[in-house]
Structure formats: structure tokens, C-alpha cells
Simulated scan of single mutants.
Amino acid sequence: MYKKILLPYDFGNSFDNVPDQLAKMTENSEGAVITIFNVITENEMSSDVKFNGKRFNAITEDKTKELKPFTDALEKRGLEYELRFEVGRVINELLTEIKNNDYEIVVMSNRRSKMEIKHVLGHVTHKIAKRVNLPVMIIK
């Protein structure tokens, strides 16, 4: 169905249901690629450099290792993926990534664990769904 999927990955969210949904979304789509995109915030970057002496490459290596259970789940289902990391403000970097690439759909996990009537979606999920001109699938 879809060949080019953007998956903004937030390490604070649960992505347990996402691999199965991605498998359904890409079945019968030869050459489908899922871009797993993580934004390292400027605060995170500066604190890691200041307190842990880490640079961008070391931070992305750590995050790649942390992603291993998720990427293993994708590999188990035969899904092709690529990892991308950027530094900056999350919403701005996501909007830039979407604008500069021809993704067919954005797949997001929703952080909200409490069902509040006023705020059903998390801040980033709400802003991206509101501002992009392509389908956004939000997986609980």
C-alpha cells in the first residue's frame, strides 16, 4: 500500500503495536522503506556534551542501540528501514523532514496515557497532524 513512510520515533512513547501496523501498511509494496526519524533536542545535545562528553555520533550510536528491540521487530517482519537523526526543535525538524522528502504517510505513536477530554493527542502529534498535507496515522 505505502512505499515511503516516515516514523518519528520518541523514546518516551510505546511503539509495541507499530511493527504490526507497519507490516500491514507495506504488504504488497515491493521496495517499501520506513524512515525512523529521531530529533535530538538542543538541550539533550548540550547536556550530553557538557556532562557526558558525548558528541553527535556517540549520541546516535547510543540511540541506535536503544532502538535495537524495535528494529529487530521490524526485521522479523521483513520490513526495510533506515535510521535518521537530526538536532534541533522537534516540530521544526519534523516539518522540514516532511517538506524535503516525498513521504506518503506519517505514522506516529500517541503519548497520552490519560484520556483528557481537552487534550487527546500529545503536543507534537497534534502539531504535526494539524500542519502537514499528507495522511497521518496515529497508533495507540
Rank of each mutant, 00 (worst) to 15 (best):
H119D: 07
E27W: 12
I117A: 13
P8M: 09
E30N: 09
T35V: 08
L134I: 05
P8D: 07
M115H: 14
T64P: 08
I117Y: 10
E75H: 12
S14F: 04
M115Y: 14
I138W: 01
D10C: 01
F37L: 04
N100W: 00
D16R: 11
R84W: 00
M25W: 08
E27I: 14
V120M: 14
F37A: 00
E116H: 12
V18D: 00
A73D: 10
S113N: 13
M137S: 07
D102I: 03
N133V: 03
L22K: 08
G88S: 07
E104S: 01
A73R: 09
I128S: 02
T41S: 15
N13Y: 02
K3E: 11
F70N: 06
S29G: 10
I40F: 04
I91L: 09
T26H: 08
N92K: 14
G31S: 04
V124F: 02
R89T: 12
V90T: 11
I40T: 05
A32F: 05
I59D: 02
V106A: 00
N43K: 15
R112F: 02
Q21G: 04
A23I: 06
E86A: 10
R84Y: 03
H126N: 14
N38L: 03
Y103T: 03
N43I: 12
N52A: 14
R89V: 13
E80W: 03
G88R: 06
I59L: 08
S29E: 11
R89E: 13
F15N: 05
G53S: 05
R111E: 06
G53P: 06
N101H: 13
I91R: 08
I5P: 06
R131M: 14
E66G: 11
K50M: 14
H119L: 10
N52Q: 12
L121R: 05
L74S: 04
E61D: 11
T96C: 01
I34D: 02
N101V: 05
T60D: 08
K50I: 11
K54P: 01
N92D: 12
H123V: 07
N38E: 04
T41Y: 06
K127T: 08
Q21H: 14
N38D: 03
R111C: 02
S113E: 10
N110E: 05
G12H: 09
D16V: 10
L95K: 09
I5N: 06
L94V: 04
L95G: 02
I139P: 00
I34P: 01
F85P: 01
R111I: 06
D10H: 04
L6D: 00
S47Y: 12
T71G: 10
R112L: 06
F70T: 07
E116F: 15
P135M: 05
E66L: 15
E80I: 12
L7P: 03
M137H: 06
H126E: 13
E97Y: 00
K99N: 10
E44S: 09
E75R: 14
R84K: 15
K114R: 15
Y2W: 08
P135S: 09
L6T: 01
V106M: 00
K114F: 12
G88Y: 03
I105R: 02
L83W: 04
F70M: 09
S46H: 12
E104T: 02
S14A: 11
Y9S: 08
I117Q: 14
L95N: 05
